[in-house]
Amino acid sequence: MVVEDDQNNRNLYQTVLSNAGFKVEVAADGGEGLTKCQAGGYDLVLLDVMLPKMDGVGILTELKKNPPKIPNKKIYLLTNLTHDPILKEAVSLGAIDVILKTDVNPEELVKKVKEILG
């Protein structure tokens, strides 16, 4: 699942990942992201940090408080923040690592997701 507020990026990630053979769901803001995450069961959540309604840290905090019945296997942060204290907090709340959006082109992202999901 990709939680991303920028429509263009969201569409691109969805297209690229779907083309690579993954089943992709998207959420456009923090609220939607939280609802879907709370439903649970995702193999991977790519979570943006700066989101409308509720930010990535907020979603992680809520998930930690009320863990979904069927857990999400992996949560990665997909953001443009670098070395921000907020990232450390997010990692402490359950995110595995950070993927910097500008660091990866779509091909590299697909490669990364493949790596993560083995």
């Binding site: 990026n9 691109l12 443009n80 921000d84 959006k101 500008t102 779509p106």
Partner: peptide, 24 residues
């Protein structure tokens, strides 16, 4: 500065992705 750099980076990421997409 952190926010500004983030906000600058976001459109750049989109540009980068779409240029790549266009190229491919």
């Amino acid at each position: 500065i952190s926010i500004a750099s983030h906000d600058l980076r976001s459109p750049m990421a989109t540009v980068k992705n779409y240029i790549w997409l266009a190229r491919s």
